[in-house]
Each structure stands twice: as structure tokens, then as C-alpha cells.
């Protein structure tokens, strides 16, 4: 009996050892993958702290010999770059785009999810079909429209379209709204809710994860968009970050200031990282619940 117990506990120890070994291998693999994934970030950070001369050295130094912290302040003091102003413009555009997308897309998605009209599926297909239109196809007509409205060279052409719904976000939100039970709405109606309050007080508070997903996606798309601002913005004081950063690479006649560009990249990913950190839990839930990645 005792022997059997001892044997069992020895087996246990062996299993634990075995498990530990596999755990170690797992850790090593994960560590390697992490290093591989983080190495571009490492190069971004180190390059941002290098002097122009050190930036050109090959093989590249892993840690800068002299830490050129001045690269970061140069972004804000160099009058040719105007980084601060571009940052502010990008924030204005992205924040209002998020607000516009959330308000308009959730409204339309609520309609599609909750009301069954005879042609609603046809209309929904029509909305989805706009996903197939590439931006270059609508670029010139939209440009003409905003020119005629006198909005050219302002931030409005970058923000306004988001207030008219985004097919992708409508689809995403409709998927989520459709999962909410009818009983909930019936209960609301019995308690005297108007249709708008069903949307505002019932649907939106329950749709946190989906709304977080929409917010993150629309923020990232708007934050990274280069072509639209290039087309609409003429004055440097209106430029957004991607336009300014692409301009740093523009000159074939001189060295690209990679160190400044990397410093700018670090600062430009901060809002996205912040947004993701705040909304991460809901974002993941949103992806799981809506089945959209």
C-alpha cells in the first residue's frame, strides 16, 4: 500500500518535472518569438536616439554610443517640421472621426438589426456593396464635392464622411446588435421606452465591447490615413502626422533623417497604444462577440 503510494508520488514528481521541461521549452520559444517581434521596436527606439553620423554606421549599433535626446525636442523646435501642430491636427481629425463613426454607424446598424422592412436585407446588401468601392474610385468626385462646398484645405473633408456611416462599422455593429434578445426590447417597450430610448438607453450601454472595437478601428484608420489629407490639405498648418512624416522621406537629394523619423514614429504610436491599453479588454470581447477580426 505504502509502496504504491510512494510509486504514485514518484510518478507525480516525474510528471511535474516533465511538465516543467515542456514549460521551459515553451518559455524559450515564447521568448524567441517575443524578441523577434520586439526587435523592430528596439531598432525604432535606438535609432531615434542616434546622431546622424551613428545612424549611418553599418552594422548598426545596438545601443547608441551617445544618446541624442535632442532628436525629440528637435521635432518640436524645428520650424520646417512643425510636428506639434501636425500632432494636434491628427488628434482633432481622429477624435472627431471616432465620434462621427460611432454615432452614425451605430444608428444605422440599430435600424438594420431591430427593424424588419420588406427590403431591409436588400438595403443592407447595398450598404455592404459600398465596401467594394476602392477609395481611388471615389477620390475625384468626393474631391470635387468638397471643393464646391468650399471646404478644401480644411480638416473637414477628413472628418465629415465619418458622420455619414461606415459600411464596415455598420456591419460590425449590426452583428452585435442582432445578438441582443428581443425580450429586452419588449420589456423596454412595456416600460414606455420610445424607439430612440431603446437605442440610446438599452442598446448603446450594452454594446460597450462593439463600440470599443469601432472606436479603435476608426481611430487607427483615421490616424494612419495619408492619401486623403494629402489630397485635401494645401497649407502646412493643416497637415496631419502621416503627411508630415512622409515629407521627411520625400527628398531624394539628401539623407532621410531616420533618427527624427523614428522619434516621430514613437510619439505617433503613443495614442494608439494608450487607446488600446484602455480599451483592450472590451476590444478583445468585441472581436470575440462579433466574430470580426
Amino acid at each position: 500500500m505504502r509502496e504504491a503510494a510512494l510509486k504514485e508520488s514518484a510518478n507525480e514528481v516525474r510528471r511535474m518535472r516533465k511538465w516543467k521541461l515542456s514549460q521551459i521549452i515553451g518559455f524559450v520559444i515564447l521568448l524567441l518569438v517575443t524578441i523577434t517581434m520586439l526587435s523592430p521596436v528596439w531598432f525604432m527606439v535606438t535609432t531615434s536616439l542616434k546622431t546622424t553620423k551613428e545612424m549611418l554606421v553599418f552594422p548598426p549599433t545596438l545601443i547608441p554610443k551617445v544618446f541624442a535626446w535632442g532628436n525629440f525636442s528637435e521635432l518640436f523646435t524645428n520650424t520646417d517640421i512643425k510636428f506639434g501642430q501636425q500632432y494636434r491636427n491628427s488628434l482633432i481629425v481622429s477624435i472627431f472621426t471616432v465620434i462621427g463613426t460611432i454615432i452614425s454607424s451605430s444608428f444605422v446598424a440599430f435600424g438594420f438589426a431591430r427593424y424588419q422592412a420588406r427590403s431591409s436585407s436588400f438595403l443592407f446588401m447595398l450598404v455592404l456593396s459600398t465596401l467594394m468601392l476602392p477609395y481611388p474610385a471615389i477620390m475625384i468626385p468626393q474631391f470635387l464635392l468638397f471643393m464646391n462646398l468650399g471646404l478644401h484645405d480644411s480638416l473637414l473633408p477628413l472628418i465629415l464622411p465619418s458622420f455619414f456611416g461606415s459600411a464596415y462599422m455598420i456591419f460590425l455593429l449590426k452583428q452585435f446588435f442582432s445578438t441582443l434578445p428581443d425580450e429586452l426590447y419588449n420589456a423596454g417597450r412595456i416600460d414606455g421606452c420610445s424607439e430612440f430610448r431603446l437605442y440610446w438607453n438599452l442598446t448603446l450601454p450594452l454594446a460597450g465591447p462593439a463600440l470599443a472595437t469601432v472606436a479603435i478601428f476608426s481611430f487607427i484608420w483615421s490616424w494612419n490615413d495619408l492619401l486623403t489629407p494629402v489630397l485635401y490639405l494645401d497649407s502646412q498648418e493643416n497637415f496631419t502626422l502621416p503627411v508630415g512624416m512622409a515629407a521627411m522621406l520625400s527628398s531624394k537629394f539628401r539623407l532621410a533623417p531616420w533618427n527624427l523619423l523614428m522619434a516621430a514614429s514613437i510619439l505617433s504610436v503613443l495614442p494608439i497604444m494608450l487607446l488600446f491599453a484602455v480599451a483592450q479588454k472590451r476590444f478583445v470581447e468585441g472581436i470575440v462577440l462579433t466574430g470580426i477580426k
Binding site: 470635387l144 471643393m147 494629402v230 494645401d234 512622409a246 515629407a247
Partner: peptide, 18 residues
């Protein structure tokens, strides 16, 4: 008025079209 090198042509074309 200015545009980054890569987008120089697209901006010019759309300005002409408009």
C-alpha cells in the same frame, strides 16, 4: 502647395480634375 514625393502625382491629377 506641397505633397510628399510618393503622393505628388495623385495630388496633381486630382487638382487638375477638380
Amino acid at each position: 502647395t506641397k505633397a510628399p514625393y510618393e503622393q505628388f502625382d495623385s495630388k496633381l491629377q486630382s487638382s487638375i480634375a477638380a
